[in-house]
Simulated scan of single mutants.
Amino acid sequence: MELLLSSALQDILDSLEFARGSAESTWGSVRAAMGHPEPFPVKYVAIGNEDCGKENYRGNYLKFYNAIREAYPDIQMISNCDGSSGPLDHPADLYDFHVYTGSRALFSMKNTFDNTSRSGPKAFVSEYAVTGNDAGRGSLLASLAEAAFLTGLEKNSDVVHMASYAPLFINDNDRTWNPDAIVFNSWQQYGTPSYWMQKLFRESSGATIHPISLSSSCSGSLAASAITWHDDDNSFLRVKIVNFGPDAVSLTISATGLQSSINALGSTATVLTSGSVMDENSFANPNKVVPVTIELRNASEEMEVTLPPHSLSAFDLALAQSRLVAEM
């Protein structure tokens, strides 16, 4: 067993040298001979995959951790053990968090990281998706539960370092997993509702997170987050709200403490919804469930909005030029 482990350790170190070593190193020279003299920027190594509960994981983990840390001290190492509800008993830079479950269960997990310790390793939510009957081949219902879960990750981005939906692609001629974000065959492709939902979170990286609270008799079926983000020309306050319930919900959005006023010109509302929670996209109808964007003519610091049943709404409120915070 020790001989096998030693061989596996050396394989890992050789693989990292192949990826990161100079073109003059033993394995880096092999990479260079294959046509890629520049090293690959490998920044993270996950030690195992869903192995935390296995008998020898922790002992073997430390051997890999120590060997990699000695050879590549800048590489961030990821443990398979969940640190969201308590401290790990071994060193790690990040810990892996996987969740595949039904839509109601995932919606209820939107507050998973609210009470996670703010010190210690950060979370890498490397696999998440609604699965089972709720998912179909990529349903609106699945995307809404996933969106609610993502609002929780967004609000806790100080402890959630990265997140990725899984799986990303599926060949329609070889379906081994449902659902997937992007479906393709030899000549066409489409995005599932989960793909379109994630596009509404793409500005979250590098954005400023703002506190948000919900006061509604329907708050149990709502999830929300707020960020400010910037494109090349403008700044926006984006408020995302998931209505997981079967009824429309009327709300007042009240934004306070902004250093810039809200401008109706350039403000928009984008809504992802459909006639049935189990609606899916397909090659025949690739745009059955896609976001629809309209101008938001009533955009202001306080405004009335209506959330359609079973929907994700993103309100992008254009911010005017910053006001002076103090008199000069």
Rank of each mutant, 00 (worst) to 15 (best):
A8E: 06
Q10D: 09
I12Y: 10
I12A: 15
D14Y: 14
A19R: 03
S22C: 11
S25L: 06
R31Y: 05
A33N: 13
G35C: 13
P41D: 04
P41I: 07
Y44P: 00
V45L: 15
I47C: 08
N49Y: 04
E55F: 14
Y57W: 10
Y57Q: 07
R58P: 00
L62K: 14
F64L: 13
Y65E: 02
I68P: 00
E70S: 13
D74L: 15
Q76K: 15
M77G: 02
S79P: 02
S84H: 12
G86I: 11
P91N: 12
A92D: 02
A92H: 03
D96C: 12
H98Q: 08
V99H: 03
Y100T: 08
R104L: 14
S108T: 04
S108Q: 14
T116E: 02
S117R: 13
S119R: 14
K122W: 04
S126F: 05
E127R: 13
E127G: 12
N133G: 05
A135W: 01
L140K: 05
L141G: 00
S143K: 02
V159D: 02
V160Y: 02
V160F: 08
H161M: 07
L168W: 09
I170G: 01
I170M: 08
N171K: 10
D172W: 12
D172L: 11
D174G: 07
R175F: 01
T176D: 04
P179F: 06
A181P: 00
A181E: 05
N185D: 15
G191W: 10
T192C: 08
T192N: 07
S194M: 11
W196D: 07
S217F: 11
C218L: 12
I227R: 09
V242G: 03
D247I: 09
S261Q: 14
I262P: 00
L265F: 11
G266E: 07
S267V: 00
S267K: 05
A269C: 09
M278S: 12
D279W: 09
A284V: 06
P286H: 06
N287I: 04
V289H: 02
V292K: 13
S300K: 11
S300P: 00
M303I: 05
P308K: 11
P308V: 07
H310C: 08
F315P: 01
L319M: 12
A320D: 11
Q321R: 15
R323S: 09
R323A: 09
